[in-house]
């Protein structure tokens, strides 16, 4: 059995820990109040990175699903499944933090806005992806079904965004891209984004390792029978 814990894992966890501490300090203490958003901007240092990881993770799920159906290498399926598990957590975080922000800034928890709707549907598709696996009669079938769900979901989410865009628009546009936000806020946000991205990568690799170990155990158990 190979030793899965390379020294890089430890280093990455250390860097992520420091980055996360810096990001938290930046979000809660260092960052001043914003003119319009006031103190609610502190929520966005968690919300924006979570939403970003939600999308990145699903991109990886879909890409790996295509590769799995094409190459039939279990490696891709493990990666897709792990990314979905981690992605579901970050999508939930994005939905919850967004809802808390909306309540404190707009005065309501929820509205049918394109970004909100498509994120909620993305969350449901993540859920469908993971559920179809656990309810499949065989593991290999579950992997195939889940890959089909991921690909359909990947095509569907932009259509949902466009549909609800026609209907309603409440979510503020990305102010960072337009340069409307003071550089100090952008810097804190960037640190937070880096910390979240690193955390995602660490969680993803750990989940993949765990799944590989589980498969190894299963194989050992089979050979003992």
């Amino acid at each position: 059995m190979k030793n899965k814990n390379t020294p890089w894992t430890g280093v990455a966890i250390l860097i992520a820990f420091v980055l996360m501490a810096v990001a938290l300090y930046g979000a809660l203490v260092f960052s001043p109040e914003e003119k319009q958003l006031g103190n609610t901007i502190r929520i966005l240092y968690v919300h924006v990175p979570s939403a970003w990881i939600a999308l990145v993770a699903f991109g990886i799920v879909s890409l790996c699903s295509v590769l799995f159906l094409w190459k039939r290498n279990l490696k891709w399926d493990t990666l897709a499944r792990s990314s979905a598990e981690v992605g579901l957590v970050f999508t939930s975080l994005a939905l919850i933090s967004g809802s808390i922000w909306a309540r404190s800034f707009w005065g309501w928890w929820w509205t049918w806005d394109p970004r909100l709707t498509s994120t909620l549907i993305l969350w449901l598709i993540y859920l469908a992806y993971l559920m179809v696996r656990s309810y499949a009669t065989e593991e290999s079938r579950g992997a195939r079904y889940a890959a089909v769900v991921a690909i359909i979901g990947f095509v569907d989410v932009p259509i949902i965004y466009l549909t609800t865009r026609l209907w309603n628009l409440a979510h503020p546009p990305p102010t960072v891209a337009r340069g409307a936000l003071d550089p100090i806020f952008v810097w804190v946000l960037m640190v937070s984004l880096a910390a979240f991205t690193l955390l995602y990568i660490i969680l993803l690799t750990r989940t993949v390792e765990q799944k590989n170990l589980r498969r190894e155990i299963d194989q050992l158990r089979q050979s003992l029978k």
């Binding site: 179809v132 309810y135 009669t137 569907d156």
Partner: peptide, 20 residues
Amino acid sequence: ANTKAREIMLPILFIPVAVP
């Protein structure tokens, strides 16, 4: 139809994608 809980699986798969 090929899963253990088909009555509940179809809505879980179908409704999110059918939203548009």
